[in-house]
Design a binder for these strands. Structure first.
Lengths: 202, 202
DNA sequence: ACCTGAACACCGTTCAAGT
DNA sequence: ACCTGAACACCGTTCAAGT
């Protein structure tokens, strides 16, 4: 149950893996230091030998979640920059969806300035292949990232509600979306289109 | 200190106003039911006569924060739809910035499906003035809303860091932005441009 | 209509001490 | 190198009872 069958003590990696398991099984609100410690059969204080605090642990989880994303086929340097941007965005969405509450975990550590800048950098590089300057690429990338995180957070929240059966049929807010993948693609295309237009105007 | 100088007991409105004061003075993490009760000179349990739980209280705060936004001059039905969208987005940003952690409060209640759909509806109506169908307007509005909330959350997070003096000079991540208002306008224009392009293609 | 008092079941974090 | 034991200073929420 503790992910370590030999009687040995835990590594930092054991802690992270147990945390990811709790996150995926129970969700972010139930990922507490005390529950994590119990899953590892140690006292809560033992976790503070591996991580200075919970935020740092969450940042590590966020990094692993986004690092697990596939490299899009559109990363092919010969591919059109629009497809590169679409591919990066889709890969990011998939990675966030791979863990329960993944978008929230990544959002929170991003807001705190923790976590690596890799995520926004990759998006910015895809945009830059359209010939945009650094600042434009960067601004577009952060705007797109905000959309992706907001969209997937919302998507995952609905998953939870639906599984809890909280919503009576037809009790859904108009803010909800029947086809999340299509709504996502539409949003991404809005960005791509906006960039395209801004270029054709210079 | 309790906002009620007569010896009378508190109304639901008193509770909300005290909560908004704590939010603005101390921030969302310090807005606890116990602290709120102390500010009103009542026991924590007293709050549960006015609100069933903390989430409902936060939803009320979120509604008040967004309801306080000015109606943009561009709401003039004769104005260009692009300016209407820009105006709504800017008014929303201003409203969120008016309270400490305003964007986070609104985000959290939006994600939970609480709070009124007014916010996304207003944006959707502005978009619809460009002649887009209902679904397109709605999708564009939610995408734009996600950008606005993500952007302002990040902006407010940085305000907090700066005021705490946590960041050594030049220690800022490339995800940060020197001119938030310009970056915001750029992001909004990306949306507007994308919509414009999508229309010119039909 | 609005609140008290007391309790329940939790949190994250620190720190001296142990092996 | 990794963990225990005990504590500190908190949380949100419930519920019977009071005025």
């Amino acid at each position: 149950m503790a992910g370590n069958e030999t009687g040995r003590r835990h590594s930092r990696d054991d802690v992270v893996e147990a945390a990811l398991r709790i996150l995926d099984d129970l969700g972010l609100p139930d990922l507490t230091m005390r529950r994590l410690a119990a899953a590892l059969d140690v006292q809560p204080s033992a976790l503070y030998w591996h991580f200075p605090n919970k935020q740092t642990l969450l940042a590590e989880l966020a990094d692993r979640i986004v690092a697990a994303r596939r490299v899009p086929a559109a990363a092919d340097p010969a591919a059109d920059w629009r497809d590169a941007v679409r591919g990066e965005a889709a890969a990011l969405r998939d990675a966030l969806l791979a863990y329960r509450d993944g978008a929230e975990v990544v959002s929170s550590t991003l807001a705190l300035g923790l976590g690596s800048p890799e995520t926004v950098d990759r998006l910015a590089r895809a945009v830059a292949r359209g010939g945009f300057d650094l600042e434009t690429s960067h601004r577009a990338a952060t705007a797109l990232l905000h959309f992706v995180l907001g969209h997937v957070s919302h998507e995952q929240q609905r998953l939870q509600y639906d599984s809890l059966g909280v919503l009576a049929d037809g009790d859904r807010s108009p803010f909800d979306e029947d086809d999340p993948a299509a709504a996502f693609a539409f949003g991404v295309d809005l960005f791509v289109g906006g960039l395209e237009l801004s270029r054709s105007r210079t």
